[in-house]
Structures are given as structure tokens and as C-alpha cells.
Design a protein around this nucleic acid. Structure first.
Length: 517
RNA sequence: GGCCCCAUCGUCUAGAGGCCCAGGACAUGGCCCUUUCAAGGCUAAAACGCGGGUUCGAAUCCCGCUGGGGUCACCA
């Protein structure tokens, strides 16, 4: 028998989440200032999962209100990255809907209109200071030991003063009138009530002198008119939450539920991941920050999604390998962890390996083509199809195929150096002699199948009184040029009779030549 | 520095007052398998930051401290 408090607790959570009867609409609202950050993708993923879970809509909105930082390629890259990750949006810049346009620079008139409305209704005011004047007042405050920021100098201008500034033709910004005293209690759907002391807060700029809105104004207006029901964004927005809340109050609009998600920190837990100060893993290897770089590094979207879903959210039931379809079914706000987390690169590599191994080998073969061609090599479909199952359990990323199986394609073939044989306890002369014997035996093998090759070489090892590895390993170096490779005889079968024997001969000749000189 | 958020193995996490001398996963060590390297199997070590409360009982609730993070723009 389940106790009644448990039911009551469930009911409470349920009612909080359902308190808004509006359909669930979430959004991802990046600014197009460059490529998508991996942390941005996670924020997008959570929003998308929640919308899909609830049968609602996921909206892509572009916040391009900073003309100085505008990057014309960014929008394309952004949409490419989201599409790669499988996050489809119901409304967006390229997909019009009833609440468009979805690019803020195309909605300027709306922001200006509502900024005016705030001024007219006493919730905001125009301020006329020049950047130099603001700088001077900031310095003065600093000198007096006052907290930095705007001194609210133009909050209570007289009509005459305003008229004078206007007559001067000064540029102007619109600032929000924040409460001067008291406490603000703000609801966060994850963290409960967050309390701020209103006196500490600033009269933030809402509308810039170039007529563009700041994030604060634009997102509130858009979220209202786009009927967004859940704003899920990173915690770094929490300190400006009071501004946003004040705006909702000033407008008299019903605010959406706000959810401040934890952020991803560098692998060492020091500071959030950023493009400046590139993060490194425990081995000092550079960790990509941009989704683009994850794509280029040969990670699979399924693995990246799964990985990201496991940071700050938990599937439950001790499972951490799951599809997005399963995640959609389970996703809820109550399983989100409020704590920031260090980015675990090893876990991504492991998960990517899991997906690589689960994939049908023929599908993997198709995906191997890109990294191989990027090296300038050519590969037939048949070669790829044969190589795929060999490398499958041995690679963590698609790109690892280059190191693991490059010897199949590299032209001309690079014979192993003496050190590879020395590592197995052989002098160049001994190695050459051994390889010559092996070559003679292999030339006599009728069919060039891996079974036949292995049988012949085991026979040779026995005849020579060698342990198989003392023959196989030098042979591996000779045929692949590597100390580490996929299974030897399977590899030789793919390389083919003629090329394999030629590689043996070349390596042997090189060893003998070195010995002579 | 002010304000805000957060705090379970090295890391990602489970844990809604007794099911917990804390479970899973990655990474690490050992063993098995083995032609190298992987993969796979088994196994080991590894955590409730500290101090006060509340309670019969606290990883779980409260307070303080400490630590970490975020934020303080006419950027988002």
C-alpha cells in the first residue's frame, strides 16, 4: 500500500508543472554570433525534449539584436548543427508559423512600440547620457566606493529637461524603472523561489540608441507574443531574471515558467566551457567547444545527444544508453539536476564507441568514407565494407579509422622502421630472414583467405619453433607498417596477395639494406 | 568585492528521513580471453565538504562555515 503523502507529493509536482493550461511551447533563441556552442546544443536539446515529450511545439528564434556581433554565416551553421543533432523545429526563420517572423531584426517596430508603451505608462524612461558621461559617472561612483553601474541620473527628469535634451538632438536609450526598495521573489520551476534585494538592481537599458532592443526587452516581448510557455535557459541568466520579471509585471502579461538549467564546466571543473581558453581533458588533449568541431571529429549525433542528455538530466533506472525516442518518452523537469557539471570527455568517447559498435557494419562502412577521403585517399565501397567490421570495435570516433586503418590506403606504402622489430627483440637481419621465410610460405598458399593464411603461418611458426606471436607480430609490422592494427590475416586478405607480398618484400629489402650500410 | 546559484566516488550520476556501513556508468588497477590493439567477461579500489541543530533515526530537513560556479554592458 502506497502512503498518501507520496501521492500528495506527486500530485503537487504534477500540479506545478500543469499550472499553466497553455499548450507547451519551448524555444531555443541563440544569437547568430558564430558557431553553436556544445552547451547551447544541450540547452536546445532540453527544450526540444520537453516540447516533444509534451506534444507541444519547439521554436527556433534568432536573437540578432547586436549589430556589432552579427556573423552572416552563423545562421546557416546554427541550423546545420541543430539539424545534424536531429532537433527539428516547428517554427523558425526558415519555417514560418502563426507567430512570425522568427528573426528579431525583422521585428524592430514591435519592440519600439512596446518600449514607447512602457515610457508612456511610467514603467520606463528615456535617458540621454552620452557614453562618455556614463563612463565618468561610473568612475566617480567607483572613487566613492559605491557599487558600479548606472546612477539613475535621468530617471526623474523634468519635462523641461527632457525637452532640452530632445531639442539638442541627443541620442537616447530607454531604461527600465526597477523597484528602488523591497524584495523580489521570483519563481523558478526548478529551484523554487529566488529572492533578490530590489535596491541592488539596475535600471537596465531596454532599447539601445540604434533603435535595437536589448535581449531583456526583446525576449519578453517575443516570448509573450509567441506564446512561449516554458523558458529553459542557462543559469547565467539568473542574475538578470529580476529585470525580466519586472518587465512581465510592467506589461501586465502572464509570464511563462522559467527554468534555469545548470551549465557545463570545463573537464577540470574550473570555469564554464568557452571558445577562448579552450578546455583540455586529463591527458592535455584539446576538447572541442563547437558543435561543428564535434561533427568534424567524427562523433555521431545519436551519441552526442545521448551524452548531452545524461549531463544534468537522468533517464532513471540506471540506464544511460538510450535513444532520443526513449528520452522523449521519459523527459521531465523533475529529473533535472540543479548543479553545474564538469564536461566528461572520456564518457563521450565511450558512448560514441558504443553507438559505433551497435551500428550495422555496412552502415559504418558508409560513414568511413568521409574521414578517409579527407586524407586524400581513395577507397572502393567493397574495401570499406570489408574494413568496417575490422575497425568497428577498435575506434571511438569515425576519424580514428585514419590511424587504425590508414595502412590500407596510404600510397606509397611506408615500411616499418627497425624500431618496430627491435621492440619484438629482432635485429634487422633476423627480421629480414624471418620475413623472407614467411614470404616464401605465403607464396605457396593457394587461396588468399584469412583462414588459409593463418593456417600457413601457424604451420611455419611451429616448423621454426616459434611462438605464434613471435612470427605474427613482425609480420604485422611488415604488412601494415604498424605495431597496432586490426587482425592480421583479415587485413592481409583485404590488402590482397600481390600487394601483401610486395609489402613483405619491400620491408625485408629495407631491413637488409640498412644492415649492409 | 556585491548579489545570486550550487555541493554524493577523480568525473557523470542514483538517492523525495529508516530500503544506504550509499547503487550505476566512465576513467583507473587486477584477472580471463587473445596474433597486436581493441571489444567482451569477471573483479578491485574509490564519495555523502565541515560544524551545529531538528528527529527515536539524516546523504536526504534547517542554520552557519567552507568550497565551487555564475553575474555585475547601449552582448546575448
Amino acid at each position: 500500500m502506497r502512503c498518501c503523502c507520496e501521492d500528495a507529493a506527486r500530485l503537487l509536482v504534477w500540479s506545478v508543472l500543469m499550472s499553466s493550461s497553455k499548450p507547451v511551447r519551448t524555444r531555443f533563441a541563440p544569437s547568430p554570433t558564430g558557431s553553436l556552442h556544445i552547451g547551447g546544443l544541450r540547452t536546445a536539446l532540453f527544450n526540444w525534449l520537453y516540447a516533444r515529450h509534451s506534444g507541444g511545439q519547439f521554436i527556433l528564434r534568432i536573437e540578432d539584436t547586436d549589430q556589432k556581433r552579427y556573423d552572416p554565416d552563423a545562421l546557416r551553421i546554427l541550423m546545420e548543427s541543430l539539424t545534424w543533432a536531429g532537433l527539428d523545429w516547428d517554427e523558425g526563420p526558415d519555417k514560418d508559423g502563426p507567430y512570425g517572423p522568427y528573426v528579431q531584426s525583422e521585428r524592430l517596430a514591435l519592440y519600439q512600440e512596446w518600449a514607447d508603451w512602457l515610457v508612456t505608462n511610467g514603467h520606463a524612461y528615456r535617458s540621454y547620457e552620452t557614453p562618455a558621461e556614463l563612463e565618468a559617472s561610473r568612475k566617480a561612483r567607483e572613487a566613492q566606493g559605491l557599487p558600479p553601474g548606472y546612477d539613475r541620473g535621468h530617471r526623474e527628469l523634468t519635462a523641461a529637461q527632457i525637452a532640452a535634451y530632445e531639442a539638442e538632438g541627443r541620442p537616447t536609450v530607454v531604461r527600465l524603472k526597477m523597484p528602488l526598495t523591497g524584495e523580489m521573489h521570483l519563481p523558478d520551476a526548478l529551484r523554487g523561489t529566488v529572492t533578490f534585494d530590489a535596491g541592488q538592481l539596475q535600471d537596465t537599458v531596454l532599447l539601445k540608441s540604434d533603435g535595437f532592443p536589448t535581449y531583456h526587452l526583446a525576449h519578453v516581448i517575443d516570448d509573450h507574443f509567441m506564446e512561449i510557455s516554458y523558458v529553459m535557459r542557462a543559469v547565467e541568466w539568473l542574475p538578470s531574471f529580476p529585470i525580466h520579471w519586472q518587465l512581465w509585471q510592467s506589461f501586465g502579461w502572464e509570464a511563462p515558467a522559467y527554468v534555469h538549467l545548470p551549465v557545463m564546466l570545463n573537464p577540470n571543473g574550473k570555469g564554464k566551457m568557452s571558445k577562448r581558453n579552450p578546455p583540455r581533458d586529463a591527458h592535455g588533449r584539446l576538447i572541442p567547444v563547437l558543435v561543428h568541431d564535434y561533427i568534424a571529429a567524427g562523433y555521431l549525433p545519436e551519441a552526442v545527444d545521448n551524452f548531452l542528455a545524461n549531463i544534468g538530466w537522468n533517464f532513471g533506472g540506471d540506464r544511460e544508453v538510450f535513444s532520443m525516442a526513449e528520452a522523449i518518452e521519459r523527459f521531465d523537469l523533475t529529473r533535472i539536476n540543479e548543479a553545474n557539471s564538469a564536461f566528461p570527455p572520456d564518457k563521450l568517447d565511450w558512448l560514441n564507441g558504443v553507438y559505433l559498435r551497435e551500428m550495422p557494419a555496412d552502415e559504418l562502412a558508409l560513414k568511413l568514407r568521409a574521414p578517409i577521403e579527407r586524407e586524400g585517399w581513395t577507397a572502393s565501397d567493397e574495401e570499406l565494407r570489408q574494413i568496417a567490421p575490422l575497425v568497428q570495435p577498435r575506434i571511438k570516433t569515425l576519424n580514428d579509422v585514419v590511424e587504425m586503418a590508414g595502412f590500407f590506403f596510404r600510397e606509397p606504402f611506408i615500411p616499418a622502421g627497425d624500431e618496430q622489430f627491435a621492440a619484438k627483440g629482432l635485429t634487422p637481419a633476423q627480421a629480414a630472414a624471418l620475413l623472407d621465410k614467411a614470404r616464401a610460405a605465403l607464396e605457396a598458399v593457394p587461396g588468399w583467405t584469412h583462414e588459409a593464411l593463418e593456417a600457413a603461418m601457424r604451420e611455419l611458426a611451429e616448423a621454426e619453433g616459434l611462438k605464434v606471436k613471435d612470427l605474427f607480430n613482425p609480420l604485422r609490422s611488415a604488412v601494415t607498417g604498424q605495431l597496432v592494427s586490426p587482425p592480421l590475416f583479415e587485413s592481409m586478405a583485404i590488402i590482397g596477395r600481390q600487394a601483401s607480398l610486395a609489402r613483405l618484400a619491400a620491408t625485408s629489402a629495407r631491413l637488409a639494406g640498412n644492415e649492409a650500410s
